[in-house]
Design a protein around this nucleic acid. Structure first.
Length: 349
DNA sequence: CGTAGTGA
DNA sequence: TCACTACGG
């Protein structure tokens, strides 16, 4: 998903590991779909079944969103959740591909479950589930009830998050993917889960996961690239959502060398990559990252949470445990109170 | 993923 | 205050 290969070129030296506290008093434009997919993939039973209410509607993403958001607020981190709009036509290929992967995983999951191989089944369950419109609407509804700003992107959420960060309305974009940097976010925060030990899949090992900050300027400097256009060109060689396969046979190191040597996609297309195949004009792909559609009319406003609304929604509609929810609401209220003490007063209505 | 319980 | 684990819906 996204420009995963690009991550291999970002050296550890410019990945600044931080604690939650070091992100205090910052607004972060979160890639909502990215977060929801994470919850969906990880909040489930040993056999891969997600959390569901009595009507069979998936609630894993709501549970994750509720508690993680409260954790942010308790640390005075102010999340703005940016939701994808209509995917651009150029992404159709990737969307079709992902659907196929999902359907294959779904078959495999069901099959392994029937064979009683629960642990193995879980792996495929993670790939099999996808966000439905209802699930997205539920997530937005919860955030609105909590008083957290929701921004609707025109198309790509990462593009919108980048705009928000570029305009200084947020301090950084928050996502596991690197796309927002291509879209021009000056700063990206990854691993925005609660700090702590996480178990490695299939192993009895644990690793300490901490949030990490990556700055666009530092990537350019570390990779000896002239500007963001060269970084985008590099990404196009490696593969983006608009050309998932990149240029076959060219890995991260060679792609970097080529961009450093030839300077641009145009030059490469006239020279060594004359015969390379792309699903669409590679210069159009570059232009998509340079000038993505975005929503210029967004507002970032933290409001009072609707406590009764949250109870109604989570407890009565989606069968959450009332005591747990009341506990969460109590934490939410205390954390929201920190608004006044924070340095962000101008952002709050 | 994150909470809440247990037992040292 | 840990480390570990069961469970959430």
């Amino acid at each position: 998903m996204g420009v995963t290969e690009l991550g291999k070129l970002i050296p550890d030296s410019i990945r600044k590991a931080v604690d939650f506290m070091q992100l205090s008093n910052r607004i972060i434009a979160m890639d909502a779909y990215n977060a929801l997919y994470q919850f969906l993939a990880s909040i489930r039973q040993p056999d891969g079944t997600p959390l569901m209410d009595t009507k069979g509607r998936i609630t894993s993403h709501l549970s994750g969103l509720l508690y993680r958001t409260i954790n942010f607020l308790e640390n005075r981190i102010w999340p703005v959740y940016v939701f994808d709009g209509k995917p651009p036509e150029e992404k159709t290929l990737e969307i079709v591909r992902r659907r196929r992967v999902r359907e294959e995983a779904m078959d495999k999951w069901v099959k392994l479950l029937e064979e009683g191989k629960r642990e193995e089944a879980r792996k495929y369950a993670q790939r099999a589930l996808f966000l439905t419109d209802d699930m997205v609407e539920d997530a937005k509804k919860l955030l609105v009830l909590m008083g957290i700003p929701v921004v609707q992107a025109m198309a790509d959420g990462e593009a919108q998050a980048a705009v928000i960060a570029k305009e200084g309305k947020a301090w950084a974009a928050g996502s596991q993917d690197y796309d927002s940097l291509l879209f021009g976010a000056p700063r990206l925060v990854r691993n925005l889960a609660i700090t702590g030990r996480r178990k490695l899949p299939n192993k009895d090992e644990y690793v300490e996961i901490r949030p990490e900050i990556i700055e666009l300027n530092e990537i350019l400097r570390a990779l000896k690239l002239k500007d963001r256009i060269q970084l985008i060109d590099l990404a196009v060689l490696l593969g983006t959502d608009l050309n998932p396969d990149g240029v076959p046979g060219i890995g991260p190191q060679r792609a970097l060398k080529l961009i450093q040597e030839f300077g641009s996609l145009e030059k490469l297309l006239q020279g060594p990559l004359k015969n390379a195949q792309f699903p669409m004009d590679p210069l159009k792909i570059r232009d998509y990252f340079l000038n993505p559609p975005y929503n210029p009319n967004y507002a970032i406003e933290f409001r009072q949470s609707d406590e009764r609304g949250i109870i109604e929604f989570l407890v009565h509609e989606h069968d959450f445990n009332e005591e747990r929810v009341r506990n969460a609401i109590e934490r939410l209220r205390k954390a929201m109170g920190k608004r006044r003490e924070s340095t962000l007063d101008s952002f709050f209505g």
